[in-house]
Simulated scan of single mutants.
Amino acid sequence: MQTIDLKVLLEAGAHFGHKTNKWHPSASKFIYKAVGDIHIIDLVKTKQHLETARDFIYQQVSQGKEVLFVGTKRQAGAIIKQEAESVSAPYINSRWIGGFITNWQEVKKNVEKMNQIEKDLKDSTKMAKYTKLERVLMDRERGKLESVYGGVRKLEKTPDILFVIDVRKESTATAEARHNGLKVVGVVDTNTDSAKVDYVIPANDDAVGSISYIIKAIAEAYKEGKEVLEKNLEKEAKELQSKKMAEQEKKAQAEKEQKVSKEAKE
């Protein structure tokens, strides 16, 4: 993984917090100083916490855990989509789906419905049975479902970890995750309660440059963790196959010896 660069964080504007009259007391440990009426975030701590969060994501993903990328604010949506898709990670970038974790079975039904409609629309034989209006209505429904569930179409179970941009905005997602025992990795600005996050990344959560740099760092950790997981699974599969073949050979040898012994007695 690439080294987290203080200079790049500075150029990205990751150090700019909110106005001093909007700060949250829990952010005091991340604030370097106030310049005028703006709090400045200590980028040394941003770097340290980002590295810790990145290592956590890497370790968890390499062990088979799943991470859901969440960023629905205007500045983050497109970046979340781009970076998550680049590493085949699930994401939500339009609006948080209420009950996504607590009512997963209903969410899963909608995802399956979306996938089925997409499959049907590609089936020319099946589509021939519908009128033009019916096909238009089906495609419209697909579009509505995709705008909400498109980023989680391949998610087969509830995620184990949430990576969140702007914990304050995504308070519902964060609360739902913590209530259900999921770990939360989140970008926390000076106006946010950091106590609601397991792995805090103190940084500007409004500037596109800041958001982009952090998302890319986490996405890279996710990708490398997946690569390790796939290699380990491949190794385990080969070892299992070798063990199975050895057992079959051993059984065949035992049967052969038994047959020879029986013939000798006769």
Results as ranks from 00 to 15, higher is better:
residue 2 Q to P: 12
residue 3 T to E: 13
residue 8 V to W: 05
residue 8 V to F: 08
residue 10 L to D: 15
residue 12 A to W: 01
residue 17 G to A: 15
residue 18 H to G: 01
residue 20 T to P: 03
residue 20 T to M: 08
residue 23 W to K: 08
residue 24 H to G: 06
residue 25 P to V: 07
residue 26 S to W: 00
residue 28 S to Y: 03
residue 29 K to G: 05
residue 29 K to T: 01
residue 29 K to Y: 05
residue 30 F to A: 05
residue 31 I to D: 09
residue 31 I to V: 13
residue 31 I to F: 06
residue 31 I to N: 01
residue 39 H to N: 12
residue 43 L to F: 04
residue 45 K to Q: 14
residue 47 K to S: 14
residue 48 Q to I: 05
residue 49 H to L: 11
residue 57 I to E: 01
residue 57 I to K: 02
residue 59 Q to A: 14
residue 60 Q to Y: 02
residue 60 Q to P: 00
residue 61 V to Y: 01
residue 62 S to V: 02
residue 63 Q to T: 06
residue 64 G to Q: 08
residue 68 L to T: 09
residue 69 F to P: 04
residue 70 V to C: 11
residue 73 K to P: 04
residue 75 Q to D: 15
residue 76 A to P: 15
residue 79 I to V: 15
residue 80 I to Q: 06
residue 83 E to S: 15
residue 85 E to L: 14
residue 87 V to G: 03
residue 87 V to F: 09
residue 88 S to R: 12
residue 93 N to G: 08
residue 96 W to R: 08
residue 97 I to R: 09
residue 98 G to R: 10
residue 98 G to I: 03
residue 99 G to K: 04
residue 99 G to Q: 04
residue 102 T to Q: 05
residue 107 V to Q: 04
residue 110 N to K: 09
residue 112 E to D: 04
residue 118 E to S: 09
residue 120 D to A: 00
residue 126 K to Y: 11
residue 127 M to A: 08
residue 131 T to P: 11
residue 131 T to W: 10
residue 138 M to N: 06
residue 139 D to L: 05
residue 141 E to Y: 07
residue 142 R to P: 03
residue 143 G to W: 00
residue 144 K to L: 09
residue 147 S to D: 11
residue 148 V to S: 00
residue 148 V to R: 05
residue 156 E to F: 00
residue 156 E to V: 05
residue 157 K to G: 01
residue 172 T to A: 07
residue 176 E to S: 07
residue 177 A to Y: 03
residue 179 H to S: 14
residue 182 L to R: 02
residue 183 K to N: 10
residue 185 V to G: 01
residue 189 D to H: 10
residue 194 S to I: 06
residue 196 K to C: 05
residue 199 Y to Q: 06
residue 206 D to M: 03
residue 207 A to E: 12
residue 210 S to L: 10
residue 211 I to G: 03
residue 211 I to N: 02
residue 215 I to H: 02
residue 215 I to A: 00
residue 218 I to D: 01
residue 226 K to S: 07
residue 229 L to E: 02
residue 229 L to S: 02
residue 230 E to H: 12
residue 230 E to F: 12
residue 230 E to M: 14
residue 232 N to D: 13
residue 241 Q to I: 12
residue 241 Q to H: 10
residue 242 S to H: 07
residue 242 S to Q: 14
residue 243 K to D: 15
residue 246 A to K: 14
residue 246 A to D: 11
residue 249 E to F: 09
residue 249 E to G: 11
residue 250 K to W: 05
residue 252 A to M: 11
residue 255 E to V: 12
residue 258 Q to D: 13
residue 263 E to D: 12
residue 265 K to D: 12
residue 266 E to I: 10
